[in-house]
């Protein structure tokens, strides 16, 4: 079945009655997933929205619990774990894949992160296939596809004037059932496309496993300015810090995004820092993306969304790095 693009606002409106609907929007010059019904315009361009969708599952700053102290005593203690039904509408395949990476981190390996789980359970994912790609896109080199993602609750296919609808989960089917009044029979053809930027990941994780001491790290990290753009715009970077705010006797514990590119990230209380310079930090980031995560969760932690390629101020580019890894002789 399919619905007309002109009916999209009505569908979004209806969903927004029961859930927060986050859609790719341009808001005051910034492109991000923003609540439908607030200021801003829908933006389904070739380029991904600048800010990744991870914020809705893993907010940049998230309150965890609050407490009150009185002398030696802790007088009040309350866990804050708020969530409401949310729809992520208009995800591209790369961003959908990033959610699967986050699921692995927050929901597996012995501990379930309650703050993440609650929001994840409340989330409905709606993917749209890409009809054009940006020059920085390379998802199909990283195991993804611009043509959709099987893990989305609902997959939409852009047919030009309308969207073809495919419910892929029970949750997705339930939502689609309520769109019936806008839907017609299928016609038209789904066009498949491919990314222009290609990298060859074949053997890269394995090769990197022997390259920890390789001179390449010194060389590529020279130009890094050590900012957090790559990590904060990355849909899969999940590292966080935990800190406290105090206001008199009241305190709140919160967690917030952290970046492995910052020197403070691994600095220990006594001052020792196992990753003292940008060489170690860039190495850890690329190895985490391309080797460590693969070893631990059997996925690439880079989904090829191209945000860091587009936004790094000095073009420290993961695709060029992969090319370079293919070329250099293993050191060990």
């Amino acid at each position: 079945m399919q619905f007309k693009k002109s009916d999209l606002p009505k569908i979004l409106d209806s969903m927004a009655k029961e859930a927060t609907v986050l859609a790719p929007m341009k808001v005051k010059g910034n492109s991000k997933f923003a609540p439908w019904g607030t200021e801003g315009e829908l933006d389904f361009g070739a380029q991904n929205v600048l800010l990744p969708p991870k914020d809705c599952l893993f907010p940049q700053t998230e309150k965890m619990y609050r407490f009150e102290t009185d002398g030696l005593k802790v007088n009040d203690f309350e866990v804050i774990n708020e969530s409401r039904p949310t729809v992520l509408f208009g995800l591209k395949g790369c961003d959908m894949q990033s959610i699967l990476c986050m699921d692995d981190v927050f929901l597996t390996k012995g501990y379930v992160d309650d703050f993440y789980k609650k929001k994840r359970d409340d989330l409905l994912t709606v993917c749209i296939n890409c009809t054009t790609v940006a020059k920085e896109c390379f998802c199909d080199s990283m195991g993804g596809s611009p043509n959709g993602h099987a893990a989305a609750d609902i997959q939409l296919y852009d047919l030009g004037e309308s969207y073809q609808v495919k419910a892929q989960t029970e949750k997705g089917q339930k939502a689609v059932d309520s769109w019936q009044q806008y839907c017609n029979k299928d016609e038209g053809e789904i066009k498949e496309i491919a990314c222009e930027l290609k990298v060859d990941m074949d053997g890269v994780p394995e090769k990197l496993a022997g390259m920890f001491e390789h001179p390449i790290w010194e060389e590529i990290s020279r130009k890094c300015v050590g900012c957090g753009i790559c990590t904060f715009l990355c849909p899969t970077c999940y590292c966080f810090d935990i800190d406290t705010t105090k206001d008199g006797a009241e305190g709140t514990k919160f967690r917030c995004w952290d970046s492995c590119m910052f020197s403070e990230y691994t600095r220990m209380a006594g001052g020792h820092n196992p990753r003292p310079s940008k060489k170690e930090r860039v190495r850890n980031r690329f190895l985490h993306k391309l080797e460590y995560f693969k070893e631990r969760y059997d996925k690439n932690l880079c989904v090829g969304c191209g945000r860091c390629v587009a936004k790094c101020p000095v073009n420290l580019d993961i695709t060029s790095f992969i090319d370079q890894v293919k070329e250099v002789a293993s050191h060990e």
Partner: peptide, 12 residues
């Protein structure tokens, strides 16, 4: 190593 979460999530 420096730790924040203790449960293999926070990364550092």
């Amino acid at each position: 190593m420096r730790m924040k979460c203790g449960i293999g999530k926070c990364g550092r």
